[in-house]
Computed example of a mutant assay.
Amino acid sequence: MGIYFSHIDTLVGMAAAAVDDDGALLEFTFLNGEMSNHMACADKAEHAPQKLRHVTQQVHDFFDRKRTSFNLNMKPKGTPFQQKVWQALCTIPFGETWSYQELAISIGDAKATQAVGAANGKNPIALIIPCHRVIGKNGTLIGYGGGLPLKQKLLDFETPLLF
């Protein structure tokens, strides 16, 4: 199976994404020195921006406010529990936040808050699987692979403008 990557310039900084032969998204990371990319790099994948046009277009549309969600085939690698958490993350609407406890409740296990937090932190497809929308129970920003300043920028971007 081939893996292909490209860099994507976004409103909040440079990112990298990786897809497989079928164009399924395997990884999306911000290149701000906080997140680690496992596949979207030259020693693991072939640099092939043309194979990621669909990802690049949707990311640009998102930051151009032309879309609030993504329609991409995704194949994140993780345990069944992590997969369940990541699927739940995709149900958090644009502009909203959930607590880790609310996320645990959404997967049917109110006591799994810490496990949900750990799974959230292992999300290999940042932004598209919106782990940045999960905050502490008291409304504070807690943990983000890209760092709290990036998490705040993403949440601010999604906050409706008041006129």
Rank of each mutant, 00 (worst) to 15 (best):
S99I: 04
W86R: 02
Q101Y: 00
W86D: 02
C90D: 07
C90L: 10
Q87R: 15
A88G: 09
M74W: 07
L89P: 05
Q82W: 09
W86H: 06
A104Y: 04
Q82P: 08
T79M: 05
D109N: 15
L72Q: 02
G95Y: 08
A88P: 11
A110V: 07
Q82M: 14
Q101H: 08
G108C: 10
Q87E: 14
E102L: 00
P76T: 09
E96K: 08
T97K: 02
K77P: 03
N73R: 15
E96M: 08
I92L: 04
G108T: 08
L89Q: 07
L103K: 04
Q101R: 01
Q82R: 13
P80K: 14
T79F: 00
K77C: 11
W98F: 09
G108Q: 09
T97Q: 12
I92D: 01
Q87H: 11
I105L: 05
Y100D: 00
Q83S: 08
A110S: 14
P76N: 10
C90H: 08
P93A: 10
T97P: 07
Q101M: 00
S106K: 04
I107N: 07
V85E: 02
K111G: 15
A112R: 10
N73K: 15
A112M: 12
L72A: 03
P76A: 08
D109Q: 13
S106Q: 06
I92N: 01
E96Y: 04
L103S: 03
A104F: 04
L103M: 15
D109W: 14
V85L: 05
E96H: 11
K75F: 10
W86F: 05
K75S: 15
E102V: 00
K75H: 15
W98Q: 06
T91L: 12
D109A: 13
L103I: 04
